[in-house]
Design a protein around this nucleic acid. Structure first.
Length: 226
DNA sequence: GACCAGGCACATC
DNA sequence: GATGTGCATGGT
């Protein structure tokens, strides 16, 4: 019987072996990345909110301002007036929105966990993820970034880089929703915190170096997977 | 000067 | 449920 092929059948099949092979190629090229670029779990949380739809370069400037003013701490940030916080994070863009979002997160962090990273980390992944998603301004990617890189929970991060690399290689359409892409990875990968952490970091690196603007696929560490 | 960057919430249909 | 829109800076 002949039937029209669903669009999805045009996608290349990715097995556990494929993904681990890609990760291996990236790891050989870049070495272990030891992400996220932040000195403390709290700095990672702040960075995860500031980097929404913004280049990391701009986020660094904002974080530098917070450090210079010695306010990069939960209670200090919470007690800053909105206008002052917005002024300091201005380089990260959307500063009024992000000031409110940071405050929302900080209030949650204080009320639910007394601003203790240790207490937050004791909460099981699924419960903590639900709690984070209830905070206005924290969506799935921001929640997963906090879970993985600040709280050391095994939650795979899906971002623009992930979509770009895996749709470019034909394993994703690119239009899948967040949960679909996340399960694409979690169904195939071994349940390893180190792997989840480093794989996403490697994806960011390769996407920045080879996919952005003028793709340099012929010299990309993932060229054999094209 | 246009375009893009590690989203998210909200309005509208 | 799907689609459109506002939020804003700094690098290329």
């Amino acid at each position: 019987m002949k039937s029209s092929k669903p669009i999805r059948s045009r996608l290349r099949k990715a097995t556990r072996r494929t993904l681990l092979g890609m990760y291996g190629a990236l790891h050989r090229h870049y070495g272990h990345r030891g992400w996220w670029p932040g000195e403390t779990p709290f700095e990672v949380m702040v960075g995860a909110i500031l980097t929404q739809n913004t280049s990391w370069n701009n986020v660094e400037k904002a974080i530098k301002n917070l450090k210079r003013e010695k306010v990069l701490a939960p209670i200090k940030l919470l007690s800053l007036p909105h206008r002052e916080l917005a002024r300091l994070i201005r380089p990260a863009g959307y500063f009024n929105v992000k000031s409110e979002r940071l405050k929302n997160f900080l209030r949650f962090f204080q009320e639910r966990y007394q601003s203790s990273v240790k207490k937050l980390c004791r909460t099981p992944l699924e419960r903590l993820r639900r709690e984070l998603l209830e905070v206005n301004g924290i969506g799935e990617e921001t929640a997963d970034s906090i879970l993985l890189y600040a709280a050391n929970k095994r939650s795979f991060v899906v971002d623009a880089y992930t979509r770009r690399v895996f749709s470019r290689h034909g394993f994703l359409k690119g239009s899948e929703d967040y949960a679909e892409i996340q399960s694409f990875f979690s169904k195939r990968l071994p349940k390893s915190l180190t792997l989840y952490n480093d794989f996403h970091a490697q994806i960011v690196e390769v996407s920045k170096d080879y996919c952005r603007k003028t793709p340099a696929c012929q010299i990309c560490p993932l060229k054999r997977y094209l």
